[in-house]
Write a protein that binds this DNA or RNA. Structure first.
Ligand SMILES: [Mn+2]
Ligand SMILES: [Mn+2]
Ligand SMILES: [Zn+2]
Ligand SMILES: [Zn+2]
Lengths: 139, 139
DNA sequence: CTTCAACTTTAGAATCATTATAAAATATTC
DNA sequence: GAATATTTTATAATGATTCTAAAGTTGAAG
């Protein structure tokens, strides 16, 4: 069972053509069991430095957005200039370390939300994010 | 009891010189009992269009950052290109309407968080934000 | 009140993440 | 193996934010 074949299937099932570039990005994002958080720039750097490949930045952006739309990635809400993405698409929460500018997962059932309020009229709830901002002690 | 005097005191107490520009911005942000959410651009537009004043954009940025540092404003974590600020500095949560790109307050005690996890070693918790993403029905 | 150093404002330039463009390359269909 | 639709790419454009350095203002001291 080649991993590549699985990625090809995954993309075809989503109506996305399995191009060389997209498969390479799948490999970086989805090969390991471990999930992780990244910015588009992080991802481009991994591809370029670790894999010695060259994928245009525009393609990396396009692919990340396509994968997000298909639900293979989640975008995380944090303050700042850059967007952070998450290969962990299960419902879970985050610490955000504002010194390291790093996200750390918090298991979904480690936080219990009581009394989730109803969405305003005409709107429906799409997701709930809990962000616990942390910083180095003695600051 | 002139409102202006209160703003002058407020700024002086924070070690910020009460300039004409800063007082005008205080007036826009803190005159009403109602709190609200805004982007720097929103704020600049209010000053320019409603008050027919001209404050350089750089000054608006500087002032918003200074007020945030002093705790008179909070920055809200939402995904996107722009930063959102909040004149409500009490602990509370938000709906984020991704169609209208609008924040709506949720009272702090309308959401009960059980089992808040401990901060990672060497870090301490600075704040907890709950964002409930909503969008128009039937999308 | 004047003076002066420290601070602030400002217009404009610079930066940086992201998106748009449109021509060249590639993938799928027949 | 064409013809067609999609994708990639380099590059330009955009837009939010920050930087710069010159001109203006403020507050403290005399
Ligand atoms: Mn990163
Ligand atoms: Mn707004
Ligand atoms: Zn995560
Ligand atoms: Zn609010």
């Amino acid at each position: 069972m080649k991993e590549l074949e699985n990625f090809v299937k995954k993309l075809r099932n989503s109506g996305i053509r399995p191009t060389k570039q997209r498969l390479k990005i799948c490999e970086v994002l989805f090969s390991s069991d471990k999930t992780f958080h990244f910015t588009v720039n992080d991802l481009a750097k991994i591809i370029e430095e670790e894999l010695r490949e060259k994928i245009s930045l525009a393609t990396v952006y396009n692919t990340v957005h396509a994968f997000k739309k298909k639900g293979y990635l989640k975008e995380i809400s944090i303050p700042g200039d850059k967007s952070y993405f998450d290969t962990n698409t299960n419902h879970h929460h985050h610490f955000f370390d504002s010194n390291a500018k790093e996200l750390i997962d918090i298991d979904f059932n480690q936080i219990e939300l009581k009394n989730t309020p109803k969405a305003p009229r005409g709107k429906s709830i799409k997701g709930i994010d809990v962000i616990i901002n942390v910083e180095n002690d003695s600051q």
